[in-house]
Design a protein around this nucleic acid. Structure first.
Ligand SMILES: [Mn+2]
Ligand SMILES: [Mn+2]
Ligand SMILES: [Zn+2]
Ligand SMILES: [Zn+2]
Lengths: 144, 144
DNA sequence: TCCTTTGATGCGAACCTTCGCAACAAGCAA
DNA sequence: TTGCTTGTTGCGAAGGTTCGCATCAAAGGA
């Protein structure tokens, strides 16, 4: 269950040091199974300790993303969200007008992502990103 | 050629006021035909006048996006980029490791976007967004 | 043209995220 | 276990973006 150790091992294998801060941050986000902002992770650590710095949270989350262990996503609310593989592959439709966020199954778009993989040799798995546009409601009310 | 007037007319039709600031900003980004950051637009206005505020630039660009007249995109360099329809529909592949940006034709992914349109009734045209992942080079060197 | 209404601007503060650097400590070798 | 090396942390500052509010001016009517 705790995939934390897998993540931590990968970091160690890549030559990064395992610090108490990193262990705690990885534990929190991997076990949550959802999107978390840096500030949310920060608050969660405060339940256990007071020795955590927001810059360290950002740096650790960025480290996970950089190594393919987490994804960064813009849900249009002004703050970046992070999630590990536990969160599963899917795409978010973010309405630029009302801000509504719809989750769509990755299979609805997998054909194109496979194409990107084949043609451009670009790896975007696990599929987790957002497409910003207009939801049905907002398109109906706006007479563009 | 100057689609500026079309953009400005749409804003006016939507009930927004046309100010010198908005005219200048729309003119700059529409004629550039490329991605521009808020700061780049700001600098460009300084060639003509000194009465421009960065908050106004952000507000105007956001207004264009909100009304479907421009797109906002994250090219992974720490600052948001904006572009009007003149920039054309396409998708950017942004490598999370080396930061390289590859432009792919919209047709390579249009099937999936049509699907999103059909199934979820969500409008994401003109297609202009980025997918963050790993380019070939960075995947080869990193033994994940 | 002049006035009124109300949306837009300018400005500083606040918010989110990144950066530089000195102090600290993980990992490793002896 | 001890000490060294060097990656990591904490902290304050800076960069990018948003927000609140007083002032200003676009738009439309008299
Ligand atoms: Mn998600
Ligand atoms: Mn582009
Ligand atoms: Zn909407
Ligand atoms: Zn790369």
């Amino acid at each position: 269950m705790p995939h934390c150790h897998t993540y931590l091992k990968k970091l160690r294998d890549h030559g990064y040091r395992i610090t108490p801060q990193r262990e705690m941050i990885v534990h929190i986000i991997a076990h949550s199974g959802r999107h978390m902002s840096a500030e949310e992770v920060m608050e969660k650590t405060r339940e256990k300790t007071s020795s955590m710095n927001i810059a360290t949270v950002y740096r650790t989350l960025d480290l996970l993303v950089e190594n393919g262990l987490a994804t960064r996503i813009d849900l249009g609310n002004g703050k970046t969200a992070y999630a590990t593989g536990e969160h599963g592959p899917h795409v978010h439709l973010v309405c630029r007008h009302c801000g509504s966020v719809t989750e769509i199954t990755e299979s609805d778009i997998s054909a194109s992502l496979d194409k990107i993989e084949d043609i451009y040799d670009f790896n975007c798995r696990p599929y987790h990103f957002s497409v910003h546009g207009l939801c049905r409601n907002c398109r109906d009310t706006n007479t563009d």
